[in-house]
Design a protein around this nucleic acid. Structure first.
Lengths: 124, 124
DNA sequence: TTAACCGTATCACTGTTATAATACAGTTGA
DNA sequence: TCAACTGTATTATAACAGTGATACGGTTAA
């Protein structure tokens, strides 16, 4: 079950990209069962208060990546093998962590300073 | 002296936003002296291979935030007090780290898993 | 003085993002 | 059956991002 209640499109990046990332993070977290029914495009657009076309754009990307299965008239379903979960998780972690490391290094932080800062901010 | 040689606009975010962030990270790193002359808009656009207007957009944001001083005809200069450096650094670290923590938590990583992963990826 | 630089401003153009209003076809359950 | 859902598609509109070209006025150093 993918939870969209905590989804807040306020980032500078396009909403449909954020939808794709949100679903992928849920998959990486192991929160999506294989064959699980996905919320409909219309329902999600109403829930998030955004245009159906924007949701459709995100969902079509997920389908193109083989994470979603759609058929006209019927609900959509998730396709998530164990291999998929591992691959998506590795990709997301690689992206997130390498980008923050690049940023922190640009600010001349040492590894120890970075680790200490992250440890201190983790529980906030 | 702000180094733009390692600046590669490949992120999905607007180039002018990336320019603003790049300058701020250099300020946070203590790499920018107060009153230091900044590369001209035309030179930077030529160096990065982007449009002068895109550079202008980024620079005007930096000026609006009080980090830059411009006058028609003359070069631009950095304005960076110690307080500015501290404030910018705190802001950048807060943004970068809290966003990565949010992502990692969404993927159900524990603090220890996260720290170990970051430590392992730091030197790559 | 003057040529070469600087910042600033404007216009037109393309592509992307997001919205809005429809429409059509297939599925599902009462 | 049929109403209410589903996915899919099209068209139009607006705003924004980025490019390209051009122009104006001020500064600086030879």
């Amino acid at each position: 079950m993918i939870d969209f209640k905590d989804f807040k499109p306020e980032d500078g990046s396009p909403i449909y990209v954020q939808i794709v990332k949100h679903v992928k993070r849920n998959i990486a977290a192991g929160a999506v069962a294989d064959g699980e029914e996905i919320i409909s495009r219309r329902s999600l657009s109403a829930l998030l208060g955004i245009n159906p076309n924007t949701v459709q754009k995100g969902f079509s990307i997920l389908e193109a990546e083989g994470l979603l299965c759609s058929h006209t008239g019927a609900a959509s379903y998730a396709i998530v093998s164990k291999e998929t979960v591992d691959r998506i998780k590795a990709e997301m972690l690689e992206d997130d962590i390498s980008s923050v490391i690049t940023s922190l290094k640009q600010m001349r932080l040492t590894k120890d300073e970075a680790l200490e800062l992250i440890e201190r901010m983790w529980s906030k």
